[in-house]
Amino acid sequence: MARAVVTMPAQAKRGEIVEIKTLAQHPMETGFRRTQTGELIPRDIIRRFTCTYNGVEVYRADLHPAIAANPLISFTTVASESGALTFQWTGDNSYTVTEIAPIRVE
């Protein structure tokens, strides 16, 4: 049940700066923790988050183990044209989650 949630306005005025909040469900296992029997728990993190706006990348974040579990990433973008924003989280163990949010720009 890999899930992500994106919160942003569904419509905006052309040129308006819109705020985007994203949450992804992920333990962000650091690779430094040990089990009760002392074995190292392998690293399992989201490595990269990207936001593309009608196919053009507008924001990208490379994450490291210091990012808290269930990462929140919040940022802004300029509403330039109607279409869709695509959010993608990729990481260790072929983790990939994609969310698409439409936007209407007037």
């Binding site: 049940m1 899930r3 949630v5 919160t7 909040k21 949450l23 469900q25 579990a69 269930n70 929140l72 919040s74």
Partner: peptide
């Protein structure tokens, strides 16, 4: 709710 990670479980 938009940043409360508990909401991920609620949505599940």
């Amino acid at each position: 709710d938009t940043t409360n990670p508990g909401m991920l479980w609620v949505l599940d």
